[in-house]
């Protein structure tokens, strides 16, 4: 599975998110899709387990402008 698809899956209600996959768009912000900093921590742990990487420090803080696309692009570089 492509990283992009897997990230969206992990952000969905199948894993640690609130919305179904079809409701998550790359241009949505992380906050738009229902994440606060504590919920985002669950996503960080899932990513570390899945890809055996250390989650990038600069992505740990979710800004109000951070989009799903930015998270995907950043993780594509790491993995």
């Amino acid at each position: 599975m492509k990283i992009k698809d897997r990230v969206i899956e992990l952000l969905s209600d199948k894993y640690c998110g609130l919305l179904p996959i079809k409701s998550i768009h790359e241009e949505d912000t992380i906050i738009d899709i229902g994440f606060d900093s504590l919920r985002f921590m669950e996503f960080v742990v899932l990513i570390e387990e899945e890809y055996h990487i250390e989650f990038p420090d600069d992505l740990l803080d979710i800004q109000s402008t951070t989009t799903v696309r930015e998270v995907i692009e950043r993780l594509e570089k790491e993995v």
């Binding site: 900093s37 504590l38 985002f40 921590m41 960080v44 989650f55 420090d57 740990l60 803080d61 979710i62 800004q63």
Partner: peptide
């Protein structure tokens, strides 16, 4: 307040 709780480690 805006930093992730994960920053605690640092």
């Amino acid at each position: 307040h805006t930093e992730s709780p994960f920053h605690s480690i640092k």
